[in-house]
């Protein structure tokens, strides 16, 4: 447990050092969120037809997306990538901890630390000035926290998969380049998922990516009613388990490959 806690606290202190970066990041995201809100405002004013989500719900969805943005980042671990490029990955492989869990915990820590520095200020400002609503009920709020925790676990498992894929230079790079387009679309970071065309909804429901953003956002708003929320969280956790197992399996294959080739 100790090494994993140390990783978390080191990451936290590092982030605090860069105060200007933190402020700049918040400001940038607030700007971004405002652009999105205004665009959707324009669309909602242009049509009286009923929509799967109301405009205030879309506003809340967007701000939750901005606040949670760093939690839902799924890119590979930059340190590991640097180590592979520099050839120092061998040091990582001889550590006395299980490699998959080390990387997985690092991924979780990377997502957990920015929570306080980014999410809280952004959500407060958005709530006070820019029209973000409070959770639909106390029950929704509690379920939202649960769902967000599950989202962190899920996103970390995706990120760890990305990190593992770096062992395969060409296909790993390929996956890292092509995945963002798909994941951003199907997680709700681009447009709220209910607003995507109807013929795409079945695919959205099955894929794991909605658990990275859409699910906690809609649980917060009550758009996923509390009765169905637990089912949604189960979907998140099931996919998390699947991706963790997949990641471990692929990692073992990759490590064996490395050993055979002589590093």
């Amino acid at each position: 447990m100790r090494p994993y806690l140390a990783v978390l606290s080191a990451r936290f202190r590092m982030l605090l050092q860069y105060r200007a970066a933190a402020l700049a990041g918040c400001a940038t995201q607030l700007f971004w969120g405002l652009i999105r809100v205004m665009i959707f405002e324009g669309f909602y004013l242009s049509s009286a037809a009923p929509q799967p989500m109301s405009f205030p719900q879309v506003v809340t969805y967007i701000w939750l997306g901005q606040g949670m943005l760093l939690l839902t980042m799924f890119g590979p671990d930059a340190e590991v990538r640097a180590m592979i490029q520099a050839g120092t990955i061998a040091y990582e492989l001889v550590r006395p901890v299980r490699l998959y869990w080390l990387w997985y915990c690092r991924a979780i820590a990377a997502r957990f630390a920015p929570l306080l520095l980014r999410a809280v200020p952004i959500l407060i400002v958005a709530g006070v000035f820019f029209g973000m609503r409070a959770p639909a009920s106390r029950g929704c709020a509690a379920l939202w926290i649960l769902s967000t925790a599950a989202a962190v676990l899920l996103t970390s498992s995706v990120a760890t998969l990305m990190t593992i894929s770096l062992f395969w230079t060409i296909s790993g790079e390929g996956m890292n380049r092509i995945a963002p387009a798909i994941i951003w679309t199907f997680s709700g970071l681009l447009i709220p998922l209910p607003l995507l065309p109807n013929w795409v909804q079945p695919a959205i429901r099955v894929l794991p990516f909605r658990g990275m953003g859409d699910t906690p956002f809609r649980v917060y708003m009550g758009h996923i009613p509390p009765e169905q929320a637990l089912l949604a969280v189960a979907h998140q956790l099931a996919w998390t388990a699947a991706l963790v197992l997949l990641g471990q399996w692929i990692l073992n294959r990759g490590l064996r490959r490395l050993v055979v080739q002589g590093g």
Partner: peptide, 13 residues
């Protein structure tokens, strides 16, 4: 100047 430690980092903000 940077003050070391977590408290220093917070003060540095």
């Amino acid at each position: 100047e940077r003050v070391p430690g977590t408290w220093g980092a917070l003060a540095g903000l």
